[in-house]
Amino acid sequence: MNSAKYVAGKALRMLTLLIALCIVSFILVKNSPIDPVQAYIGADMMRVSEEQREQIAENWGLDKPPVEQFISWAGAIVQGDFGTSMIYRVPVLTVIGNRFTASLALMGVAWLLSGIFGFLMGVIAGMNKGKLIDRAIKWYCLTLAATPTFWLGLILLMIFSVWLGWFPIGLGVPVGVLSENVTLSEKIYHLILPALTLSIVGVANIALHTRQKLLDVLESDYILFARANGESGLGLVWKHGVRNIMLPAVTLQFASFSELFGGSVLAEQVFSYPGLGQATVQAGLRGDVPLLLGIVLISAIFVFTGNLIGDIICSIVDPRIKEGRASV
């Protein structure tokens, strides 16, 4: 009963968020200097007359007042019609679908790696507070937090692809191979460097957060009591520490979907990786309004879902929330 209420509440929040997002993005695009007709015509500009332009505009309903335009656009969105991408000339959802799968692999790998390594680094630093290893990890994290993703991507590209030649310079698949002939190992091979870039940057947040949490836990009364009861060392940290810092870490990692997405936009650009991030940049630069709006909505859902999963996991695993809700 209460769980249903909880989920319904979350869903309602997401819905209002999406509606607000639709309105804001629509207004932004409407007021941006991008002329959709111009963007559509592109290089054919010379061959399209003023009359034809007006016809296109009329065809798209661009002559109607903005509110009416919004309603017809929003109506189509509700029915699942996101329109057709101007640069790829296929339905927006198809583009997003294809790109998203590629991005998902990249982001998933980066997310897992940064989560696991970030957590470990945080635990190691927290357990050795003030020692050399702690200071090294802290220094690394703080430096990384100030490092732009694209710059790191360029450095990695320079070292591993250009100098050492270990990895491809870019793209998601080998050049000159038909897409149905691309093997999984080739895909993975192309994925490593961008994923590495994303993970290297991604560990900073989770590591610093975990370190702080562990320090808090180690100073807590229950750790003191566990020590009074003769527990010590790694066993103590494992039994009482990890359990108590795992939950916030998981929540944080799920809440980091937005940074992950932002990072992937930059990393994909540097590595010419054909993911959603790259499509976003293209859509923005070339005025592909339907695609841009589609990506904005989908990525919002993506980020929100991340937060939601974090919350749900927390409420399932944490007895204080789980039992608390059941007994109230």
Partner: peptide, 29 residues
């Protein structure tokens, strides 16, 4: 000796691990 010969009765339940069942915590000691 601590936890065996000499033991502490703490002030409050805050001295117990919030995420561990109390029976398990006693077994731990």
């Amino acid at each position: 000796f601590r936890g065996r010969e000499i033991s502490l009765i703490p002030q409050s339940v805050n001295y117990l691990d919030p995420l561990m069942k109390v029976g398990e915590q006693v077994q731990n000691t």
